[in-house]
């Protein structure tokens, strides 16, 4: 399973680098979204600071949805998924590989997004990088665990790209709430308190659920 998952992740990353809607497009989309949020909230950075972590997390949510929504449509082309299923490879490798690759794409989005956010929203206080890293990484883990499963599930539907966000965002509401609260803590607003536990609990629950249910989500036509 380990080698197969690495192979899937490598394939996903090659697609992310070379594909039409690859990582570069997702990063550009995130930068644009952040700029739009800054325009929408107006130039008064001081007023925006209270809810600015919300703008950051909304950007990552939409970028994440954008990154995930094509991930199983690609498998449908040229019967790639059928090929994978009959290859005898562990089916969970597909989940783990896509999860790992998704984490790297989100990491790239955040590596660009966070500095842009600090620039656009004029953050002047201290930035506790380890805490910020933990908040983003834990948020991504839960978001992607639920997201990869739901992307697989909705890829069977007509207009699946419309159904996917409809299913993804309600499921990941706890990530949004806890992500915003812990990121605010990392940017100098309190300690985050029980939100860290909620985030960890969500990650554990959805990793377990997704591993359990992923094979059922692969039902092919």
């Amino acid at each position: 399973m380990g080698r197969e998952a690495v192979a899937v992740a490598a394939k996903e990353l090659r697609l992310a680098v070379r594909g039409r809607t690859g990582a570069a497009t997702v990063v550009a989309f995130a930068a644009l979204a952040l700029a739009l949020m800054a325009f929408a909230f107006g130039p008064e950075a001081g007023r925006a600071r209270g809810f600015a972590p919300g703008a950051l997390w909304l950007t990552f949510f939409f970028a994440g949805q954008f990154a995930l929504q094509g991930t199983f449509a690609v498998e449908g082309e040229n019967a790639a998924l059928e090929g994978f299923l009959v290859s005898g490879a562990d089916r969970l490798a597909l989940f783990v590989g896509k999860l790992a690759a998704g984490g790297m794409v989100m990491g790239a989005v955040e590596a660009v997004g966070v500095p842009l956010y600090l620039l656009f929203f004029g953050h002047l206080g201290e930035v506790r990088l380890p805490l910020l890293g933990a908040s983003l990484a834990m948020g991504d883990a839960g978001f992607l665990a639920a997201g990869v499963l739901l992307a697989a599930v909705t890829s069977h539907a007509r207009a699946g790209e419309a159904v996917f966000p409809l299913a993804l965002f309600p499921v990941t509401v706890p990530v949004l709430l806890a992500g915003v609260a812990t990121t605010r803590a990392a940017l100098g607003g309190g300690d985050g308190g029980a939100w860290w536990e909620l985030l960890a609990g969500y990650d554990a629950l959805f990793l377990a659920l997704s591993l359990l249910l992923f094979e059922s989500a692969l039902e092919v036509e």
Binding site: L150, V153, T154, L209, A217
Partner: peptide, 10 residues
Amino acid sequence: AVSAVVGIVA
């Protein structure tokens, strides 16, 4: 199958 997965998650 897919609605069962979503039903369990929901």
